[in-house]
């Protein structure tokens, strides 16, 4: 199999970094992006990084233009970049709402659209979006984060249909809390209660997420699209 071209958003740290390292170690060509440069990429000379905000349409389309010219194809897009803000809705500034929707929802849409333009040429593509268990669990204090991700569920389901004729599948993984920066500010007692609502009461691990994505992007998964897979039995 020739090397897959995999684009991952939000690769500076957390799950994005783990995903980039995973696919680089498998011999795939990995392109990443985030608002600032990662400090780990020196270990992987083949890794290419774009410094951008995922909701900056001009920068994003320029990046896709470069990818198209350099590689002529894109096999996989993993829309990992995401931000959260844990707060009661009464205490949530409108600017925060806009910022969260810009990165999570609008960024995901932009990347899906531009990726599908390249993927449709080869009639092959795999897109994986990031949902969250905060949506089905209806977690208080995460109204905006959960809403921005609920929109991603809807996007995933509809884009799956729009892109099916192009040989592109669109699925989403819904991680449980993993011990990353995203959940660092949440009180321990609240976190324990949250884990109790999962069927399997433990924190998620990067490997749990990677496993689902590996499945979605396999060639053999060409009949799997429009699905949202929640981890932990949520």
């Amino acid at each position: 199999m020739t090397s897959r071209i995999i684009l991952i958003t939000g690769t500076r740290k957390g799950i994005g970094k783990a995903l980039a390292e995973h696919y680089l170690s498998l011999g795939d060509t990995v392109i990443g992006c985030s608002r600032s440069l990662p400090d780990w990429s020196e270990n992987f000379p083949g890794y290419e990084h774009f410094e951008l905000d995922v909701s900056d349409e001009k920068k994003v389309t320029e990046m896709f233009g470069k990818i198209r010219k350099k590689y002529g194809k894109l096999d996989v897009l993993i829309n990992n970049a995401g931000i959260a803000s844990m707060n009661h809705s009464l205490l949530t500034p409108f600017d925060t709402v806009k910022k969260i929707f810009s990165t999570n929802t609008f960024g995901t849409f932009l990347f899906c659209r531009e990726a599908a333009k390249i993927m449709q040429k080869k009639k092959f593509g795999r897109i994986v979006n990031f949902a969250t268990v905060a949506t089905p669990l209806k977690l208080e204090g995460e109204a905006i984060y959960a809403a921005s991700k609920a929109a991603i569920v809807s996007l995933t389901e509809t884009l799956a249909r729009e892109y099916a004729d192009f040989g592109i599948t669109v699925n989403a993984v819904g991680p449980t809390p993993i011990q990353t920066d995203l959940v660092r500010g949440v009180p321990e007692e609240k976190m324990t209660r949250l884990l109790q609502r999962q069927a399997i009461h433990r924190f998620g691990k990067f490997e749990d997420v990677i496993n689902v994505i590996d499945f979605f992007i396999r060639e053999e998964s060409n009949f799997v699209t429009g699905q949202v897979l929640y981890l932990g039995g949520v």
Partner: peptide
């Protein structure tokens, strides 16, 4: 249309 957009961008350097 997508193909045309890309070809125009390649030729004229403008998206």
């Amino acid at each position: 249309l997508v193909d045309i957009e890309q070809a125009v961008a390649d030729e004229y350097g403008k998206h």
